[in-house]
Every structure is written in structure tokens, then in C-alpha cells.
Amino acid sequence: MTFQERFSLNFIEKGRYKYLLSGINNTLLITIIAAAIGIALGFLIAIIRSTHDTTGRLKILDFLCKIYLTVIRGTPTTVQLLIVYFVIFSSVSRPMLSAFIAFGLNSAAYVAEIVRSGIMSIDPGQMEAGRSLGLTYPQTMVFVIIPQAFKNVLPALANEFIVLLKETSICIAISLRDLTYGTQLISSQTYDYMFPLLAGALIYLVIVVFLTWLFGKLERSMRKNER
């Protein structure tokens, strides 16, 4: 078979490219929602943890956060996904929802530690300056500390979301039709592995390169006010 014939067989005939398109759609949707959950929950955990580290308050919450981080970072993501899908949602088949939750909770743990390191890297004088003006602790956190911390950890956060995007490929374990699963669906019909898999890899690569470019742009625009 010529290159063109194989290409046509895998992607054109019977509209098989649609497996890839809907796969991209699901992969991106899982990544975006998981990232949103990860950011929201991760920032919350980071603020709780760093508040405890610097002021000694929120002992119980800090303890709960530590347990959470230990469990999430101490077990494989695939196992977490399987537990959410087969144990927590055992009575209903909700693969997408399971993926949102599993990847969201997983990402939150890593985002939390990244953001916490960012908060802790800000000179304590910044908090003192805010407080000395009469701003409350939460106000100083939101208007003074977090914006600076966010800028400092943006490269690490970008990396986390790129890892997240690629890690969603383990959704194949719960038969969720993401991009990777799409390539396998094509293979199962055409008995060709090389073309679908290389196409899948190429698509992941293009998305990652695009994300890298986007984060780089964001980072540069946020660094404008330095020197």
C-alpha cells in the first residue's frame, strides 16, 4: 500500500478522522476542567499551608491538607482514576465526570505545592508593608502576595498543565474516548498501528508546543514591569 492509500484508509474512509477530532475534544475538555479544579483547589491548599507555616494558625486544616497531598502524591494517577470510576461511581458509568474529578484532584496537589513555594518565596516585608497600611491578612494575600507569587511560579504551573494534558492519555484505562483511545479505535478497524499512533503523537506535540508558546507569551507580558 502506498502512503496515500494508508493515510486514506486510516483517516478518510468512513470518516475515521472523527475519532481523532472527538478525541481531541475530550482530551482538551478534561485538561481544561481538571486544570480549573486544580487551580482553584490548589491555590486554596497553598494559602492554607503557607498561612499555617508563617502564622501558626489553621492547624487542623493544614493537617487535612497534608494528608491529602500525601495520599494524592503517593499513589499512581491511573489507580486514582480507576478508583473514581469503578469505586466511587460504581453504580453509574460516568467516564468524563470521573476524569474531571480524578485529574482535577490530582492536579490540585501538585499546583498546591508549586503555589506554596511561590508564596513562601515572597519577601516577608511585603506582607508587613500591606498589614502596616491597615490591609487585612486576606486582602494582603490577594492584592500583594498572590500576584507576585503567581508570576514567579508561572513556568512551573505551565509545566504542570503540560504534564496534565499528556497524562489524560491514561483515560484509556476507563475506556474514555480521548485522543489516545481514538487512535486505538482506528487501529482496531484498519489493523494499522503506526499511522493512527503517529498522528496522535503529532497532535499531542502540536498542542503542547502551542501551550508552551502561550505560557511564554503570558510570562513575558507579566514580566514587563521588571527592569
Binding site: D123, G125, Q126, E128, A129, G130, S132, V144, P147, Q148, K151, N225, E226
Partner: peptide, 9 residues
């Protein structure tokens, strides 16, 4: 403050 502690952002 000695170190000014202006908000750099």
C-alpha cells in the same frame, strides 16, 4: 521600612 517594601508588581 528599611528595605522600602514597595509592591513591585
Amino acid at each position: 521600612f528599611q528595605q522600602f517594601n514597595l509592591f513591585p508588581h
